[in-house]
Design a protein around this nucleic acid. Structure first.
Lengths: 392, 392
DNA sequence: GGTGATCCTGCAAAGGTTTGCAATGAAGTA
DNA sequence: TACTTCATTGCAAACCTTTGCAGGATCACC
């Protein structure tokens, strides 16, 4: 496939002799247990010996074997992070926040991508189970019952899904959807479509429920279109359907779909926001770069990542896994506390929403939430004559 | 921070008694070695016993402990993937391709993000070393010598960096930069800026070298601006500098910077491509969504991920790590072959490049590579009057 | 019936580390 | 001096699995 071999060399730089605690012990003339303690309980070993051992270790290039350590302590100091789709820009901020938080607690994070596939998801939990101290399940696509079952194999914290009995970090997308619908109703829209996401998404159900209620309360009619793939392509694919449905506003499952939809509408010659208003969810970086800039419900992804790690570690610390020490053989009824945290969302009004067919002439209706707090840099780029018509 | 505790419940669903091979052995009335063989060498055990053991295992919910297995076999069936910045859309396709390829070979991939920080990078290699069979180092920021040193701790394959003696997967950014410069020169640009990326990036050096040569050959002057952070922000930050420098075209280290630069120029009232042409590198999805659409050098990220995994596994398979079996004690001079693969890049011409101040009137100069092969859907969206002016 | 081959299974060591317990020696106390 | 206390270190078991070796049974064949 169009690649060229530049070099094929061979060397005999062997992959290094693995140097163990035993080698260090021999070199420094102490017992292996002393070496072990030098690393895991330094205060128990004589300062002189300690520096000698450390010197030898340094010399030999010794690194503790975490796997072996984990085998006996039951703690790997790793946590797993299972993600529906790394390519979705929603996740990287969450991942980064989780990693940074974990690092502060001397933990490492292993990320794995499931391609939105429930089976892969389950497989990954199994694969990770014995190699990490706990797993963060982000926007899972598995069934709740399966998640509960898996949680008996390895401590779990669930993000973007409510599972009773398990610690969860949720984003208040219900509130977000409500704000979005109220915003649209306030702009004079009465026919609104909801672009659904994956069927098995908790977020999807929450949004649908809240949007339905809010629409009813506002005297608008809500058409649900979906489920769809939560991607740009998924959004573009329903553009035609949106046009036919005759709605004047759309709330999409996420920004990616919203952006795809805008592309699709554009291709059909439907102008946003003049003919159709579009609202997304997530406030990914990209939503500030499209023309028109996307009105969207901002979700606190960084906070979610941090919180989830905290909850996992907290739950983890009290119960040293694999603990069936002498005596405790039978009576292990470890009580664990499961908190569920709900994080706020915020409607960010930009340029993809405008007055609808039922707009009243006054200006009092527009922008009930004030200007975009996330774009303090001013009016940004004076684009071509298309966008920027936010009811003013 | 604006979050609400919804529930705090406690349950005594203990985190499950860890069930080992021994439990299964007891339950099915055989020796542990038979259980072990049932899983790792089924053909060696009597079909009857096998099904009995499997039934018991299923019953008890037994899962082999991969850490323990790794301890003795020396193979974890995991590979590590170290990435400079997950938030850079360049990487997800690479990650996905690597994961998929690894899965086919019955391997799992653990991804870790370094935040573009060399120290974190080194730390992660150490952390992963004993938990994976090999590591893919993508766009490393460490020094070559450190990489070589680390490669003695764990098998390494390097992506986007040339390290002699190590297997590398490279993208021909030299060729890419050359094509880009030739394209710009062909359009009549004589003052061209190169927006540099991170100082320690091999890609950065390669581009600089090739772009310099190509510019000289084309009678153009190349101004190097940088180093810069390889992000949107990094690109936006040099907009002012670009304007002052008086160049009529810019080749950016990557798409993110190119897009940031376009934003920045737009904010300064500089029109793209009428006043300044912009070329990126990577061809991330986003580059098709900006207005104007970005002309860019497409890099084969998927192929890179697949190739890298293949090379790692191939190198891995021949040398069963930690092999100092009886007899081989001293003489381990495992020869390993280190291939270096170079993958092609392609210039994708879109709307962010246009004729420069020295453009000849004829049309023969423009688009030496033909129209965008990646956008077969036709002319796309008829944007506002700004973009679309590609020398035709 | 003896010989050898084949199939299945058990035994035990090994892999690198942690950790409770015991042993040593020195210092402190009565 | 005898006794206690403390700091430091060694010993060996344990964690869970794999695997070379050997033993036992079964079978075919001469």
């Amino acid at each position: 496939m169009g690649h060229t071999h530049v070099t094929v060399a061979t060397s005999d730089e062997g992959p290094a002799v693995p140097v163990t605690i035993r080698d260090v012990a021999r070199a420094s003339g102490v017992h292996i247990s002393t070496v072990s303690r030098t690393f895991s309980a330094p205060h128990l070993v004589n300062p002189d010996t300690r520096i000698r051992v450390l010197a030898c270790a340094e010399d030999l290039g010794y690194r503790p074997n975490r796997a072996a350590r984990a085998l006996i302590t039951g703690r790997t100091h790793n946590i797993g992070l299972i993600i529906a789709d790394i390519a979705n820009p929603f996740f990287p901020p969450l991942i980064k926040a989780a990693e940074s938080q974990a690092r502060h607690r001397d933990y490492h994070v292993f990320v794995a991508d499931t391609n939105e596939d429930p089976a892969t998801e389950e497989e990954l939990v199994h694969a990770l189970a014995k190699q990490v101290d706990g797993v963060l399940l982000c926007s899972p696509r598995m069934s709740n019952s399966l998640i509960e079952q898996l949680s008996r194999e390895v401590p779990l914290v669930v993000v973007n899904r409510q599972v009773t009995g398990l610690p969860c970090v949720l984003m208040d997308v219900g509130q977000g959807a409500r704000s979005a619908i109220e915003h649209l109703v306030g702009l004079g829209h009465r026919g609104i479509a909801l672009l659904g996401g994956p069927r098995s998404s908790w977020t999807n159900r929450e949004m649908r429920r809240a949007a339905g209620t809010a629409a009813r309360a506002g005297g608008a009619e809500l058409t649900v279109l979906g489920p769809n793939a939560p991607t740009e392509t998924g959004g573009a694919a329903v553009a035609e359907q949106v046009r036919r449905s005759g709605v004047s506003a759309v709330l999409a499952y996420n920004d990616l779909m919203a952006i795809g939809l805008m592309e699709g509408l554009d291709a059909l010659g439907v102008r946003v926001p003049q003919e159709v208003s579009v609202v997304g969810v997530d406030d990914i970086t990209l939503s500030r770069l499209t023309r028109p800039k996307l009105t969207t419900v901002a979700t606190p992804t960084g906070a979610a990542g941090r919180t989830a790690v905290d909850m996992l570690l907290q739950q983890d610390i009290e119960s040293p896994r694999g603990a069936r020490g002498p005596g405790a053989g039978t009576a292990l009824g470890v009580r664990r506390t499961t908190a569920q945290v709900m994080l706020q969302t915020d409607l960010v009004i930009r340029d993809s929403t405008g007055p609808g067919p039922h707009a009243r002439p006054a200006r009092s209706l527009a922008a009930p939430h004030g200007p975009d707090p996330h774009c303090p840099a001013g009016p940004g780029i004076p684009t071509a004559a298309t966008g920027d018509a936010v009811a003013s």
